[in-house]
Amino acid sequence: MSNSQFYSKKVMEHFLKPRNYGRIENADAVGKVGDPSCGDVMWLYLKIKEKNGKYVIEEAKFETFGCAAAIASSSVATEIIKGKTIEEALKVSNKDILKELGGLPLVKVHCSLLAEDAIREAIYNFMRKKGLQIPEELEKRHEKIKARLDKTLEMHKKLGYVTGEN
């Protein structure tokens, strides 16, 4: 993995041609995350279908305000989780994202964590809606993510920024 201060070819490719960006209307799940240290935010939308008693991610799209690494991480994350069951998707970590991107500069590693958070949070949102049993770990994770998002959005609200659905 490269620790160069520059972005890899793969990062640039995903940044310039992000896969699956935009919004899913009537999404089955939305994961909203933010990083208060840099102000970046990521919205992850999922379409989830039930197949043989399993919940499978059929479609994933994102909207991201942030740096090139955040946009590339979002793009890669949507590709990785498409077709996975929610159990499988919960196991996807930022290491998988970094691997797919060919690494990120050290100061940009947190951008890939934001994408990991977004996956967790979208699935949490889905399980909540469906009334499924939420693992304790995911519940705890949600609380942390929520607190960080609130803090980030507080910054943007001071500017008067709004997202489409507010």
Binding site: V41, E63, T64, G160, Y161, V162, T163
Partner: peptide, 12 residues
Amino acid sequence: RDISPFKGKWEV
């Protein structure tokens, strides 16, 4: 801006 979730602005 198309990629960004922020689409508009309130008057503040």
